[in-house]
Amino acid sequence: MVERADPARAYRLLMERPKLKGHFNARAETGVPMAKITRGIARRQDHDSSCDVRSLSHVLIKYGDWAEGPALDQQMGSAKLRQMTGWEPQYTSFRNAQF
């Protein structure tokens, strides 16, 4: 998760360095589960954060194979982007972001 202007700065920095090749991730912090982020945002917005959790098999039956992607347990970091371009996110923690 990054503040909405952060990817734009990352793209600009990459475009200014056309010799850089490969895949780059723009991420403010690594290792924070999405559930923790959404609960924190919901609390700040005075939302009860209640939701229905569906099993993967239910979601696959309803939406098809593409729905498996969001269920993957993946962690990406932005160390490569930071080291090669000097990019830094505006907010380094979702707890400090403005909503």
Rank of each mutant, 00 (worst) to 15 (best):
D6W: 13
D6C: 13
R9F: 00
A10P: 08
A10T: 07
Y11S: 02
Y11A: 09
R12L: 14
L13N: 00
M15K: 06
E16L: 08
R17I: 03
P18D: 03
K19C: 04
K19R: 12
L20R: 04
F24E: 02
F24K: 02
N25M: 03
A26W: 07
R27E: 10
E29F: 10
T30P: 00
T30N: 06
T30V: 14
T30G: 01
P33I: 02
A35Y: 00
A35V: 04
K36S: 11
K36I: 06
T38P: 00
G40M: 02
G40C: 03
I41D: 03
I41C: 03
A42W: 02
R44W: 04
Q45E: 02
D48V: 01
S49L: 00
S49N: 14
S57I: 07
V59M: 08
V59L: 07
L60V: 15
G64C: 12
W66L: 07
A67Q: 02
G69D: 12
G69K: 13
A71R: 11
A71D: 03
A71V: 03
L72V: 08
D73W: 01
Q74V: 13
Q74Y: 06
Q74G: 05
Q75R: 09
M76A: 14
M76Q: 09
M76P: 00
S78V: 03
S78R: 02
A79S: 15
K80H: 11
L81I: 08
R82W: 05
R82P: 06
Q83M: 14
T85F: 11
P89V: 10
Q90Y: 05
Y91E: 10
T92S: 15
S93W: 09
F94R: 01
F94H: 10
R95A: 12
N96F: 08
N96D: 15
